[in-house]
């Protein structure tokens, strides 16, 4: 028997976590926005950031899943290594699945229903993607995997280093974020940054993928030395 299959079973025992919940949240957000778009009835188009909800959910799910299943799995004689690869498999599969559905909905929105009849821009936000459905899928996939793995690695810091690790991590994160934000504002980098992202989405996707790989390697290293 493949040693990672029990771990996959553990995660898929309740499919709600990785497959049901993201869509319940996203679709509720979608319908609310649809109602708003209907009420406003703006011909120019209604742009909304509701799509972010699925990424936030994936971040939280990545964080919670480790906390929920790691110690349980170890208690059932599962190796750390198998736990990591089993969990990674589930995260990748869930991200692929969600990315496919997101791409389809995005296509429906921009090319078939023209904003669900009310000019709502919910799924397709960057026009440069509309042309290529693979890139559409790829960017969704990379952002999904990146958000879940960033949640996963933060939880990994906690499992490996406990509260002291958390404090240090958030301290460093807060300092870095303030410095970057300040620098961007001070040197007027914001608009350059946004234009770059809008013009080079494939580069953004590539960078996020590299970042995801780094998260994955770090989580692996943390889990290998984690105790219950």
């Amino acid at each position: 028997m493949n040693p990672i299959s029990p771990v996959i079973k553990i995660h898929l025992k309740h499919k709600l976590t990785w497959i049901g919940m993201p869509w319940i949240i996203l679709l509720s957000s979608f319908f609310i926005n649809l109602i708003i778009a209907f009420l406003i009835g703006d011909k120019a188009g209604f742009y909304t950031g509701g799509l972010v909800s699925i990424f936030i959910y994936m971040f939280v799910a990545g964080m919670v899943t480790l906390n929920q299943t790691f110690s349980f799995s170890l208690g059932l004689s599962v190796r750390r290594k198998d736990y990591f690869f089993g969990t990674l498999t589930v995260i990748v599969m869930a991200s692929i699945l969600s990315a496919i559905v997101l791409s389809l909905l995005s296509y429906l929105e921009s090319s078939v229903t023209s904003g669900w009849g009310y000019n709502l821009h919910f799924f397709s936000l960057l026009h440069s993607f509309d042309a290529n459905s693979f890139w559409q899928f790829w960017i969704f996939f990379v952002v999904l995997i990146n958000t879940s793995l960033s949640g996963f690695v933060i939880s990994g810091i906690f499992i490996r280093f406990g509260w002291p690790g958390m404090y240090i991590f958030f301290l460093i994160a807060a300092i870095l974020l303030s410095v970057i934000t300040f620098a961007c504002t001070y040197f007027h980098w914001w608009s350059t940054l946004f234009h770059w992202v809008a013009d080079h989405p494939n580069m953004l996707a590539f960078d996020l993928l590299i970042l995801s790989l780094i998260y994955a390697v770090l989580s692996y290293l943390f889990l290998r030395k984690a105790t219950v």
């Binding site: 029990p6 079973k9 025992k13 309740h14 929920q68 349980f72 059932l76």
Partner: peptide, 22 residues
């Protein structure tokens, strides 16, 4: 383990389903 952790949605049957593969 006395303090074995279980994922919070797990039922008894869920744990038993996993056992044959473990």
């Amino acid at each position: 383990k006395e303090g074995q952790q279980y994922p919070h949605l797990f039922r008894i049957a869920d744990v038993l389903d996993l056992c044959p593969s473990l």
